[in-house]
C-alpha cells in the first residue's frame, strides 16, 4: 500500500521504530480488532488502537452513554450523554483518526450473535472490555472455539487483571483459571462496587498493547500469565498459569462444545440491589 504524506507524518513515531517500520505500520492499517464493550476498558483500548492506525475497529455495545460513565470511559464526552456508545465511540475515533473504519454493533453479545460478530470481519484480535462474568465466559468460549486470540481483563476498585489467549499454543484460557462463573447470590451488590477511573486506562491500554504486539509479532505476550495490578501498593505481578488439562472448553476432554448464556444479574443503581 502507498502511504500518503500525511500518513507518513502521522505514524512517523511508529515508522522510526525498527521493530515497526513501514511494514509494521502497513500491518496495523490492514488489521482488524474487535472491542466488546466500550466502557472503562474498551474506551482507552479503542482510542489507542485508533491512534496507532489499526485499520478496522469493531465496537460492540448496546448501552447508551450515562453521565456516571464519564469518570473513566474517556472515549465519550459530556455532549454524548444519551447517545449509543458505539456511535459515540465511532465519532471520537473518526475525529482523532479518519484512516480508521469503525464497525458498530448495537447489541450485547450472547450465544446467538457472538460468532457472527467475530466472523463478520474475520477479526484478527478480540478485546474483552465487558464488565460481567456471563460475557467474559461467553467471549472466552467463543474465542477458544473459533480459534481467535483475545485479551481478557477485569477491573474493580483499585485492582486490575489481564491475560492473553493465543489459540493452538497450549495457552491457558480464562476458563482454565476460573472454571465457571461465581454462583448466583455470591456476587456482592453494586452498592459495594466502585472503581478508580484510571484503572480502565491502565489495564485497557495494556490490552491494546497486547493487540498491537500480536499484530506486529513483537515480543512476548501475556499468554500463560495472569498480570495483576494493585494501584494502592503500585504493584504489578505476573503470575504463571499452566494450561488446565481439565478445562471444560480447551482441556483434554472438553464438554463445552457450544456457547452458554449464563444468567446475568442486573444491577439497579437507584437501590443498589441486584435484580434477576
Amino acid at each position: 500500500m502507498d502511504f500518503t504524506e500525511q500518513q507518513i507524518e502521522r505514524y512517523s513515531r511508529h515508522i522510526i521504530l525498527s521493530e515497526v517500520g513501514v511494514e509494521g505500520q502497513e500491518k496495523l492499517l490492514n488489521s482488524k480488532v474487535l472491542i466488546i464493550g466500550t466502557g472503562g476498558l474498551g474506551a482507552p483500548a479503542a482510542m489507542f488502537l485508533a491512534a496507532a492506525g489499526v485499520g478496522t475497529i469493531g465496537l460492540v455495545d448496546r448501552d447508551v452513554v450515562d453521565l456516571s460513565n464519564l469518570q473513566r470511559q474517556i472515549i465519550h464526552q459530556t455532549k454524548d450523554v444519551g447517545k449509543l456508545k458505539a456511535v459515540s465511540g465511532r465519532e471520537t475515533i473518526n475525529e482523532m483518526n479518519p484512516d480508521i473504519k469503525v464497525i458498530e454493533y448495537h447489541t450485547f453479545v450472547d450465544s446467538s450473535n457472538i460468532m457472527d460478530i467475530i466472523k463478520d470481519q474475520d477479526y484478527d484480535f478480540i478485546i474483552d472490555g465487558t464488565d460481567n462474568f456471563a460475557a467474559k465466559f461467553l467471549i472466552n468460549d467463543a474465542c477458544v472455539l473459533a480459534k481467535k486470540p483475545f485479551s481478557h481483563a477485569g477491573i474493580i476498585r483499585f485492582h486490575g487483571q489481564l491475560t492473553t489467549y493465543i489459540p493452538d499454543n497450549n495457552t491457558p484460557c480464562y476458563r482454565c483459571i476460573f472454571k465457571q462463573p461465581p454462583p448466583e447470590g455470591v456476587v456482592p451488590t453494586c452498592r459495594e462496587a466502585g472503581v478508580l477511573g484510571v484503572m480502565g486506562g491502565v489495564i485497557g491500554t495494556l490490552q491494546a498493547t497486547e493487540a498491537i504486539k500480536y499484530i506486529l509479532g513483537l515480543g512476548d505476550s501475556l499468554a500463560g500469565y495472569l498480570l495483576t495490578y494493585d494501584a494502592l501498593d503500585m504493584e504489578f505481578r505476573k503470575i504463571k498459569i499452566k494450561h488446565n488439562k481439565k478445562c471444560g472448553v480447551c482441556g483434554d476432554e472438553p464438554h463445552i462444545t457450544s456457547l452458554i448464556d449464563y444468567a446475568q444479574p442486573v444491577c439497579d443503581l437507584s437501590t443498589g440491589t441486584i435484580k434477576g
Binding site: G154, I155, I156, R157, P182, V187, A193
Partner: peptide, 15 residues
C-alpha cells in the same frame, strides 16, 4: 500459593 480473584461486574473476592 496464588489466590486468583474473579474481577468484573462490580465484584471480586478481595473483600
Amino acid at each position: 500459593i496464588e489466590f486468583l480473584y474473579f474481577m468484573g461486574g462490580g465484584a471480586c473476592g478481595l473483600y
